[in-house]
């Protein structure tokens, strides 16, 4: 495959990942934000722990969907880097695959240090 054509394909894949992520986030945020305003309960002031997520979602609590939208927003860029890693590996562009892996490792370290702090 020619480099120009291959790059076009890569650009389309990355832009689609970003588009799906942000569309999901904005839809979820908007719906849960307005549902929260309609209910007598006030908006949450802290995030729900990941362990409590499934039960909060199954109860249909708006704050669970608000938090879910935040989590999806925060993982979308990481997902984009993951997709790039897979694409670089598939194209045998090992240097860029290592670079993408390093960036992912830094992001994972950041989350880990945050939890431990």
């Amino acid at each position: 495959m020619q480099k120009g054509k291959a790059d076009e394909e890569l650009n389309i894949i990355v832009s689609r990942v970003l588009l799906v992520g942000i569309s999901l986030v904005i839809s979820l945020m908007s719906i849960s934000f307005f549902l929260s305003l309609l209910r007598p309960v006030s908006l949450p002031t802290s995030t729900i722990s990941l362990a409590d997520f499934p039960s909060a979602l199954s109860q249909g609590r708006p704050e669970a969907f608000l938090n879910l939208s935040l989590v999806i927003l925060l993982i979308t860029p990481s997902l984009c880097v993951t997709v790039l890693l897979v694409e670089f590996v598939r194209r045998r562009q090992w240097l860029f695959a290592i670079i993408a892996l390093t960036v992912l490792a830094v992001l994972a370290l950041s989350a880990t240090l945050g939890v431990r702090g």
Binding site: S42, L43, P44, T45, S46, T47, E63, L66, N67, L70, L74, L107, S110, A111, L113, G114, V115, G117
Partner: peptide, 12 residues
């Protein structure tokens, strides 16, 4: 990620 995991992100 640091702010979120340390509970500093206020959804409100």
């Amino acid at each position: 990620y640091i702010y979120y995991t340390r509970g500093m992100v206020n959804p409100l």
